[in-house]
Design a protein around this nucleic acid. Structure first.
Lengths: 239, 239
DNA sequence: CGCTGACTGCGAACGGTGTACGCAGAAGGG
DNA sequence: CCCTTCTGCGTACACCGTTCGCAGTCAGCG
């Protein structure tokens, strides 16, 4: 019964490419992969599912992409291209740095799989968008007068990556539960309170955090830490 | 030939437990999993390989652990128990915070898989060691006089997690190459320089970073950022 | 026009994965 | 002694990433 999918390989069943179906291409593959990652996360992306979304056979993808890891690398760089950085020549380095960090965070939250991929493969990616991102930041911090711009950038980025990782891991967990963030928190609270157990300070912290709106809480948490880092960096400027 | 492993199920082939082989237990499973993760990383850990290391059948593990994800959760909490935190009642909050961050970083670097797992599952872990870790930090920052100890802790932890993630992703990549860190950098430089391409500032940055010892460079990079964060936090203390 | 060589798509297959299921022997308590 | 509960595990299923070799398509060239 191996012929069941294409019963009689006759002349009439010839493949006739739809002209608007622009055939497979590396770009199309990467774009569709990102859509799938955004919608269902890292684990849901398989070469077979991706291919069938593109009306292609699973192994056809390998004509355009060497390996799944390489595909991920391409997806990461593509997404880095989305980060809208402020112009680097403005007078106010601090506002620009704030914008850059917020733009980075926004992108990470828009693609929650990003941080987990970064956590596995990190910096050995040398994609053009990532390089351009790094360059623009270097220009910004150099122009601001930092004696060690690379260190300053690393500090800012590590804070942002850490917060982004933590946040998107949380949001992924929430999403998997199928509930809203507030519902999920409400459900988790009893367990958390119990786990906090004898830890008084921790239990207090949970209790005070219980009532607030989760989204604005996360936003303001990020902004608080960002100000802390920028304050610390400002002390390193000469004069 | 399905009987070849145990030809005749007779009385004489009875399983006779070695008394020093203390049978399967959740703790033993988690410990061995951590050993495997440390040695070969997340991808190399499979239930079958883990079981065979414990002289057990693959599916026997499921009597003690509901799922592979749960096993990871347990491994994460176990490793959090290793973090040696300073006493929280010392007079110098800043020294204590530095010690805590360094201890955290040391643990992350000792178990490079940790940050990538945290990046996938984050905080919904409520294990006892993780709770105790959080409690101790809360005590420390409360005693130091911070009006919002939780925010201060989050800032510090996010910086440390971000740096730890970045570092261990890098080290994992290096390890996979089978080379020393210095060798790997030497090999990567041409590609990096080429990828830097027209980006002048970036190329400069690479060039100046080329000659230094990678380990001390990473250590001092972490310390620099840590001081930045602590400076920023210190400004939030009353008085 | 016809040939040729490169390129693209793909079905089948391989060796792995996590885990559900149900059987078999061990252990402990009445 | 029997009966229940617990523990280990062989088998099986659905899925995964990837290799291989075949079959069409098409551009370039004589």
């Amino acid at each position: 019964m191996a012929v069941s999918t294409n019963p009689i390989p006759s002349v009439w069943a010839r493949r006739q490419r739809e002209p608007d179906q622009p055939s497979l291409s590396r770009d199309a593959i990467v774009r569709e992969a990102i859509v799938m990652l955004d919608a269902e996360g890292t684990e849901a992306l398989s070469m077979r599912k991706l291919a069938s979304r593109l009306n292609a056979g699973a192994t056809s993808l390998y004509r355009h992409v060497a390996t799944k890891d390489e595909l991920m690398e391409l997806a990461v760089d593509e997404v880095f291209g989305e980060i809208a950085l402020p112009p680097a020549d403005g007078p106010d380095w601090r506002a620009a740095a704030t914008d850059a960090a917020q733009a980075f965070r926004a992108t990470v939250l828009r693609h929650p799989w990003l941080s987990s991929v970064l956590g596995q493969a990190g910096l050995a990616y040398l994609g053009p968008n990532l390089m351009s991102f790094a360059e623009q930041l270097t220009v910004l911090f150099t122009a601001a007068g930092f004696p060690e711009p690379v260190r300053a950038i690393d500090t800012l980025l590590c804070y942002t990556i850490g917060m982004g990782t933590t946040e998107s891991a949380w949001l992924t967990t929430v999403a998997r539960s199928g509930q809203t963030e507030a519902e999920f928190i409400a459900r988790l609270m009893p367990a958390a309170q119990e786990a906090a157990g004898d830890f008084e300070h921790l239990a207090d912290a949970y209790a005070t955090a219980a009532g607030t709106d989760p989204v604005t809480t996360r936003d303001s948490k990020f902004s608080y830490g960002l100000e802390v880092v920028l304050d610390g960096l400002a002390l390193r400027l000469p004069r």
